[in-house]
Measured scan of single mutants.
Amino acid sequence: VRLVQFQKNTDEPMGITLKMNELNHCIVARIMHGGMIHRQGTLHVGDEIREINGISVANQTVEQLQKMLREMRGSITFKIVP
């Protein structure tokens, strides 16, 4: 398990697509080339996201998580399992 932190201070999309796997874990499905996450190089396709800013992603839908990420500003921390 590791923590990945980055800054999001604009309306620029993060450039990641999330999916739920068969165990209902949140997985990074795709990283858009040239997007914020791609430029930082901190997340990778297949990484499992456990928490966003200390909030568990368990029992949340992809749509709920994407909305939460769109609305966040400032420092964002993901707890991930590579």
Rank of each mutant, 00 (worst) to 15 (best):
Val1Phe: 11
Val1Pro: 03
Arg2Asn: 15
Arg2Ser: 08
Arg2Lys: 09
Val4Gly: 01
Val4His: 04
Val4Cys: 05
Val4Ala: 05
Gln5Leu: 07
Phe6Lys: 02
Phe6Glu: 02
Gln7Phe: 12
Lys8Ala: 08
Lys8Ser: 05
Asn9Trp: 08
Asp11His: 15
Glu12Arg: 06
Glu12Asp: 07
Pro13Trp: 07
Met14Gln: 02
Met14Asp: 03
Met14Asn: 03
Gly15Pro: 04
Gly15Ala: 03
Ile16Pro: 01
Ile16Val: 08
Thr17Tyr: 12
Leu18Pro: 00
Lys19Gln: 12
Met20Phe: 14
Met20Val: 10
Asn21Ala: 04
Glu22Cys: 07
Leu23Asp: 15
Leu23Cys: 14
Leu23His: 14
Leu23Gly: 15
His25Thr: 07
His25Pro: 01
His25Glu: 14
Cys26Tyr: 08
Cys26His: 04
Cys26Arg: 02
Ile27Cys: 05
Ile27Asn: 03
Val28Arg: 00
Ala29Trp: 08
Ala29Asp: 08
Ala29Val: 07
Arg30Trp: 06
Met32Gly: 07
Met32Thr: 14
Met32Asn: 15
Met32Leu: 08
Gly34Cys: 04
Gly34Tyr: 02
Gly34Arg: 05
Gly35Ser: 14
Gly35Pro: 02
Met36Phe: 15
Ile37Phe: 07
Ile37His: 04
His38Phe: 09
His38Tyr: 08
Arg39Cys: 05
Gln40Arg: 07
Gln40Tyr: 06
Gly41Leu: 03
Thr42Ala: 13
Val45Ile: 10
Gly46Val: 00
Asp47Tyr: 01
Asp47Arg: 00
Asp47Ala: 01
Asp47Glu: 03
Ile49Met: 04
Ile49Gln: 00
Ile49Leu: 07
Ile52Leu: 06
Asn53Pro: 01
Asn53Glu: 03
Gly54Glu: 08
Ser56Thr: 11
Ser56Ile: 05
Ser56Phe: 04
Val57Lys: 01
Ala58Lys: 15
Ala58Trp: 07
Ala58Met: 10
Asn59Cys: 06
Asn59His: 13
Asn59Val: 05
Asn59Gly: 14
Gln60Asp: 05
Gln60His: 12
Thr61Ala: 08
Thr61Lys: 09
Val62His: 06
Glu63Gln: 12
Glu63Asp: 14
Gln64Gly: 09
Leu65Pro: 00
Leu65Ala: 05
Leu69Val: 10
Leu69Cys: 07
Leu69Asn: 02
Arg70Cys: 11
Glu71Ala: 11
Glu71His: 13
Glu71Val: 11
Met72Tyr: 09
Met72Thr: 11
Gly74Ser: 03
Gly74Pro: 02
Gly74Lys: 03
Gly74Arg: 02
Ser75Gln: 14
Ser75Cys: 12
Ile76Val: 12
Ile76Lys: 00
Ile76Ala: 03
Phe78Ser: 01
Lys79Met: 06
Ile80Phe: 07
Val81Gly: 07
Val81His: 08
Pro82Asp: 10
